[in-house]
Design a protein around this nucleic acid. Structure first.
Lengths: 249, 249
DNA sequence: ATGTTTTTTGCGGGTTTTTGCAATTTTTAT
DNA sequence: ATAAAAATTGCAAAAACCCGCAAAAAACAT
């Protein structure tokens, strides 16, 4: 088993169960605990997990580290949300993923907007439900504890029955060559279904995530209609996407 | 169980109930009281809680005595929750409704319990998802904004596909003649389906709701196996239900 | 393919952390 | 005042960790 493979597996386990034990991992994949520890250390150095005595925890544990950096990203996400909200019209059916950017959109929806939002993200749904004129459909299935979204066959089947006007998708990584990519297989399956069931797909990404990629592809960029970042659409970084025919806002 | 995990759990318990006892924590997580004490000490050193003899307190909680009125119903629900938690065994599949009593149960689930919880209640699901060993299935459908639960044909259809070991049902009104009754048609439909799909149904009700009724019937009392209230099972008020063959706790 | 370099891995130590226990002291309650 | 409950302290065993090293594997260049 390759190092990268192992680390991907470990990361997946953590996002699934919120924790892993070095001992059981070592057992599961027939490598020494030292190796596991080194893997955990690597993941921790990359800031993707929190290493503790005996194993590791998901980052959502405890209280996060850098409030400054977070607030910064938060401002960016507000800009993105503003642009996205402008695309939403009365009467639309809108599929959405989870993620903090989506949450920001949910908070910014105008009070008089009448639309139907469909999502498997629990925090997003709670936010939508605060709006008096919005109808909210929750996609059910097994709950991914880390991201608080539902994933699985039932969720995908339900999504495929729909035909939404718009899909608002928070992305983890986007790059001209690899398209939209992510690191959780289950989540990717759901995102794929959402794209398939929507007339238009709008991707939301802070510019930091542009030109990065992750192991699993959601879709190539030609399946995305619109890309929204906090940058000016004329920005150099966005050029490749404009050239690829995307609508960049 | 990892040290950090324990501490996160303890902190969560404290912010939830405003206090914890070392003894019960030690019991819940199968570690010695010494370990709990050391954990509390760590948390206190970090300034996150206030350590006192026998346990610890939330620091956000002002010194003044308890605002009795509100805590009262809350305390009752804790008693009910305690009784209900005792019925839950490892490996069970459990269907639950929403409501504050259910929420209290969710918060009291022992950390090492391994079970599968299935619910359409968003707040309950969020609480279940905090427990490391619990698998959570969310029933999807249209979201009822007031109660934050999903209702509708899809939800009912999904529930009917299941066969759970136990149904934990918060009730709005119960009375010997009318059975379990409620006031929201959609919610009643979901509850009916849940009862049908469970081997046993346990009803949870503060005694205040006993001998009251509402317009729509969920089921007659003979479909309920167990009734849990905050009262002693021998209490006069519960006599009719005992006589009707219910298991009253 | 072949040899060389780099990376990765497992192992043997010595060190640190964690945990439970026992003995003693402090606090709380009756 | 006295007994019970909880805290503290010290200690020892187990578990986890870190460090350096050498074999093994992978990557690279020729």
């Amino acid at each position: 088993m390759l190092k990268k493979e192992r680390q991907a597996f470990i990361f997946h386990q953590i996002s699934l169960h919120n924790k892993v034990l070095s001992a059981s991992l070592s057992d599961e994949m027939n490598v020494s605990e030292d190796t596991i520890r080194r893997d955990l250390q690597d993941l921790a150095d990359e800031g993707r997990i929190i290493k503790v005595h005996g194993g590791a925890l998901s980052q959502s544990f405890g209280y996060g580290g850098t409030p400054d950096a977070k607030i910064y990203a938060h401002e960016l996400k507000k800009i993105i949300a503003q642009k996205a909200v402008a695309l939403i019209k009365d009467g639309m059916f809108i599929l959405t993923t989870g993620g903090t950017t989506i949450l920001e959109i949910a908070r910014m929806l105008p009070a008089q907007l009448k639309a139907t939002f469909i999502s498997g993200s629990i925090p997003a749904v709670l936010e939508y439900a605060r709006h008096p004129n919005i109808e909210v459909i929750l996609i059910g299935d097994k709950v991914n504890k880390n991201s608080k979204i539902t994933v699985g066959g039932d969720a995908i089947a339900k999504i495929k029955q729909l035909k939404a006007d718009l899909c608002l998708m928070g992305v983890n990584a986007i790059d001209h060559a690899h398209g939209i990519t992510d690191n959780d297989w289950d989540v990717v399956q759901v995102k794929k279904a959402m794209i398939e069931s929507s007339q238009k797909t709008v991707c939301l990404s802070i510019s930091e995530k542009i030109n990065s990629f992750q192991p699993i592809q959601v879709c190539p960029i030609n399946e995305i209609n619109t890309l929204i970042t906090e940058l000016d659409p004329a920005n150099e970084v966005l050029r490749p996407f404009v050239n690829a025919g995307m609508n960049v806002l």
